[in-house]
Design a protein around this nucleic acid. Structure first.
Length: 222
DNA sequence: TTGTGTTTTACGACCTCC
DNA sequence: GGAGGTCGTAAAACACAA
């Protein structure tokens, strides 16, 4: 049977198959796996038709590569399985129409699972990045607070010095000057206190830099 | 060879649509 | 009401490490 006569590829749902191993997109590993599987079951036969002559449970017959491939193509054309198409496919493949329906159901379910897994991974990645960004901001806040403390201390020192010499010093301006001209912001900075959740994997989200080194806990860097 | 984890097939329950 | 849908699950088929 020429499957290209059966299915018009102009109406393909590419988004559906992009996330799945398709008949065309099968890895050689998957194909080899199926070959081994079938040759072990059928003694190297061509697996033509729906009859599994391995003497196994007739209620659970694995489809041949050919059958699976044709069903994949049919599914690619349309995810919905109308009665006429189901009956036609079943006749063409030597399967029970119920088997065709079940195959479609299971295939859709597998696709949905895979899509959900990919979506979860994407969201987790975004979540990790957000956590990391929060850590950076918290570290920045800590650094600014330290600078503020040092500046206030300097103001107090200058005021007391000015008082002991009887001179008048504008504290506001002095504080501003120190703030602007202060030294390295992180020179006196100690290890950050940012708490991370178990399983957090921010290393693949952003590159390491000084901020990150201060932010992440030791277990993360181990 | 065998134990174990994964994939595939099949089924029943329930839901939605015509 | 009947058709096909999803969802959850059982069990067979299979791959593979030990």
């Amino acid at each position: 049977m020429d499957k290209h006569q059966l299915f018009d590829s102009s109406n393909v749902d590419t988004t559906f198959f992009a996330a799945n191993g398709t008949a065309q997109g099968d890895t050689s590993k998957q194909r080899a796996r199926r070959r081994r599987r079938r040759s072990a079951r059928c003694g190297g036969g061509d697996g033509d038709g729906g009859e599994m002559d391995g003497g196994g449970d007739p209620k659970k017959r694995r489809l041949t590569d050919e059958q699976a491939e044709i069903l994949e193509l049919s599914l690619r054309e349309d995810r919905k399985l109308e009665t006429a198409r189901k009956v036609y496919l079943a006749a063409e493949l030597g399967l029970d129409p119920k088997q065709v329906a079940v195959w479609f159901q299971n295939r859709r379910a597998r696709h949905k699972n895979k899509t959900l897994e990919e979506e979860f991974a994407r969201l987790k990645h975004a979540h990790d990045a957000a956590i990391l960004h929060k850590c950076h901001l918290e570290n920045e806040l800590l650094r600014l607070k330290e600078r503020l403390g040092a500046t206030e201390q300097e103001v107090r020192r200058l005021r007391s010095a000015a008082g002991s010499h009887g001179a008048s010093v504008d504290g506001g301006h002095a504080a501003g000057a120190v703030g602007v001209c202060g030294g390295s912001p992180s020179s006196s900075f100690s290890t950050g206190t940012c708490q991370q959740q178990p399983g957090f994997s921010g290393a693949d989200v952003l590159g390491r830099d000084d901020d990150l080194m201060m932010c992440v806990p030791e277990w993360f860097l181990a």
